[in-house]
């Protein structure tokens, strides 16, 4: 019931006077992600402005691009109240498949990955199993699939290399194309959530699934769609990784992106219990996560404390931004 009124509220927000919109914006989870990033940027600028050179910016953006794509996928799934632990493994397998079949069939590789993850989503929706356990299982399967398809070797890009590497080598305003691509995806995702029936239904489903079912929201189809989006963006992230690295392996850049992807979505204000996602803030979440290692160096703390700072950061940001109004039970 509240979900309906919230949906209606979302729709009517656009017509509201500026004052009402500003007061909505002021709530913590909306304003915090850009603020956190700005504070970190400011601190680094004060202490060591050299890190904000065009070169530094381009490195942060290139690192942030695959994280952002994975985080956007994760945010889609989180928004419907599920979680996808296998999306980084999907992107890893995608990278390997892309590198192997790029001379000729690169596009079909992405489509094959898309089909695969749609199946995973369908299992979650139809077998009604908890996504955490299921995607933990598919994570293992996909990791092994990556090892087997690559034969545990590193695959270097040969022919048609420039098809992919342009994403990394072309800069627009110091920032590689892959990052702009991810930002474009975020914009499209934001518009889809705000203005389409499917987007609004997904948010309703995340807020209260039982209410959504009773209101006739096609919950199964939407959950499948959310997982398909996550997998598809995993594949696109694979493209960005391949563009940057020029090679693919089961233990390459993509293998450790699961937690940064989740962290970026959470720091970007997505709620782990569903029903709350702002793709535009996820951009800042990904930038923050990509910027932390550099900020630590700039502050002169030493690279070894990176994980420690990461951990404190996630807890701090989520503790500051999480909404506690909806229901009293937090799991």
């Amino acid at each position: 019931m509240t979900d309906h009124s919230e949906i209606l509220m979302n729709r009517t927000t656009l017509a509201k006077p500026l004052g009402g919109r500003l007061s909505r914006l002021a709530s913590g989870h909306v304003i915090a992600p850009p603020l956190v990033f700005a504070v970190m940027l400011g601190a680094v600028w004060l202490l060591n402005p050299n890190y904000l050179s065009p070169f530094g910016i381009s490195i942060v953006a290139a690192t942030a691009a695959p994280i952002l794509l994975l985080a956007l996928g994760q945010a889609t799934v989180l928004n419907v109240g599920s979680i996808d632990l296998s999306n980084a493994a999907t992107s890893l397998l995608g990278t390997i498949l892309l590198a192997m079949i790029l001379p000729g069939y690169g596009f079909w590789g992405i489509l094959a990955i898309l089909a695969l993850v749609t199946v995973i989503g369908a299992i979650v929706a139809y077998a009604q199993v908890p996504s955490f356990a299921l995607t933990l299982g598919t994570l293992g399967v996909l990791q092994t699939a990556a090892l087997v398809t690559s034969d545990s070797q590193t695959i270097y890009l040969g022919a048609n290399r420039e098809l992919v590497s342009t994403l990394y080598t072309t800069n627009v305003g110091f920032v590689p194309l892959s990052f702009w691509l991810a930002v474009a995806v975020a914009l499209v995702f934001w518009a889809a959530l705000q203005f389409t029936r499917a987007g609004q239904s997904m948010t309703a489903m995340g807020k209260n699934e039982t209410a959504a079912i009773l209101s006739g929201v096609p919950v199964r189809g939407l959950r499948i769609a959310a997982f398909a989006v996550s997998g598809f963006l995993g594949g696109v992230a694979g493209l960005a990784i391949l563009a940057q690295a020029g090679s693919a392996s089961a233990s390459g850049i993509g293998s450790a992106l699961l937690l940064p992807g989740i962290a970026a979505a959470l720091v970007g204000g997505a709620s782990i219990s569903g029903g709350q996602t702002n793709p535009l803030n996820v951009i800042f979440g990904a930038l923050t996560v990509a910027f932390v290692p550099m900020a630590i160096q700039a502050l002169g703390v030493g690279a070894q404390s990176q994980s420690l700072v990461y951990g404190l950061f996630i807890i701090l940001v989520v503790a500051l931004t999480t909404t506690r109004s909806r229901g009293i039970v937090i799991k």
Binding site: I83, L259, I262, A263, L266, I272, S273, Q304, S305, Q306, S307, L308, V309, Y310, G311, L312, F313, I314, I315, V318, A319, T322, R324, I330, K331
Partner: peptide, 21 residues
């Protein structure tokens, strides 16, 4: 009132960080 998934993701990193240090 922070979800346990997020908190323990954080303490995972913190523990790992202490180990690395």
């Amino acid at each position: 009132k922070v979800p346990s998934f997020v908190v323990t993701l954080g303490t995972w990193y913190i523990g790992l960080g202490i180990g690395v240090l």
